[in-house]
């Protein structure tokens, strides 16, 4: 057991899976000699050599395309895309092939592929270095989308993702890479895909969130508890296919739901969660569902980012409005 940051936990997951399974291969820009721009793959080249930690040309379409070829030929590739905003040059292969090979092969091929990318705002970059594109991936049948919120979950979810038979888009909130450390067990352990985590229990209102927003919501919940509002936080962890049971049982209990994500609001993951609540537990609701999200804008540079990124204050305001309905 050691106290690790999220990026260290991700490195540990990669290292341990590579040591345990020689089919696991890492490929991407700057992953080898450099150790990755966020240091997620540091030290792996020395340990596993250049055929298993492959520094690729700057060519995302080829990175994901060749990873699909590797995945259907007996390997378990983990492709790193340097920033989430660069994924779209490889989106063709995620959309056109990774998600479809199982169907095309009548279930014979699995595509045990993980595409990792640093995700979201919080490092004072902009546009392609601060995007939150998860809904685009969630909308592709056949993909799984995972966004961890803690170092412990990051390691356990990444190990599960590498072992999973289906293609997984693994988005790593940049702002959490080094935000805090926590105890992370040595050796392999798994956080199962598709299972939400109840971050804190409460009876008055359910906040459904994931990724970098979890700690924001925890701060809001702490403040609200001092006012006497008892908030439950559901961290989806696997954004799609999400844990509808966990959402339903929480909202059925509390009767109120606030959904928080940093991605743009319209057609976002929050819309699907709201629809699920409406379909499954509408009659339990005591107030309309609220969403606290990024605005429908392109991620801006540092100062404006503060206005776009949901804060604890915005979450608190939304909860107040819901409670007062």
């Amino acid at each position: 057991m050691a106290r690790l940051s999220m990026v260290e936990a991700i490195n540990a997951a990669l290292r341990e899976k590579m040591a345990a399974d020689d089919r696991v291969v890492i490929l991407g820009e700057d992953v080898g000699v450099d150790g990755g721009v966020f240091r997620a793959t540091v030290g792996l080249l020395d340990q596993f050599g250049p055929w298993r930690v492959i520094d690729t040309p700057l060519a995302e379409n080829c990175i994901v395309g060749s990873a699909v070829g590797m995945a259907i030929s007996g390997l378990r590739p983990v492709a790193e895309i340097q920033f989430e905003g660069f994924m779209f040059k490889g989106f063709d292969h995620i959309y056109s092939h990774a998600s479809r090979m199982l169907r095309r092969s009548q279930g014979v091929y699995n595509v045990p592929l993980v595409v990792r990318a640093p995700y979201g705002a919080g490092v004072r970059a902009l546009e392609h270095h601060s995007d939150a594109p998860e809904a685009l991936f969630c909308h592709v049948p056949g993909l799984k989308v995972v966004i961890p919120s803690t170092p412990y979950d990051a390691k356990g979810l990444l190990i599960s993702s590498i072992e999973d038979p289906d293609p997984v888009i693994f988005l790593e909130p940049k702002r959490l890479y080094r935000l805090f450390k926590e105890e992370v067990p040595d050796g392999e352990y798994r956080v199962p895909l598709g299972e939400a985590r109840i971050v804190r229990e409460g009876n008055d209102l359910s906040i459904i969130t994931y990724g970098g927003m979890v700690s924001v919501c925890e701060r809001a919940a702490q403040h609200l508890s001092e006012e006497g509002v008892d908030v439950e936080i559901v961290d989806l962890r696997t954004v799609w296919p999400f844990d509808a049971e966990a959402i339903t049982s929480s909202v059925s209990k509390t009767g109120r739901a606030t959904i928080v994500h940093e991605a743009p609001r319209s057609f976002g993951v929050g819309a699907e969660i709201a629809a699920t609540i409406a379909e499954r537990c509408l009659l339990s609701l005591l107030a309309p569902i609220k969403r606290v999200t990024g605005y429908d804008v392109i991620p801006p540079l540092a100062k404006l980012e503060e206005y776009n990124y949901p804060t604890a204050d915005r979450v608190i305001r939304a909860v107040h409005e819901t409670m007062q309905f």
Partner: peptide
């Protein structure tokens, strides 16, 4: 016969990846 698909050029990197896997294995 590993794959065919109408997205022009898109099976080319898949073939390259399959070849990489063959070398590694």
């Amino acid at each position: 016969f590993l794959a065919a698909t109408p997205i022009v050029g898109s099976t080319v990197p898949i073939g390259v990846g399959a070849a990489l896997a063959s070398v590694m294995r």
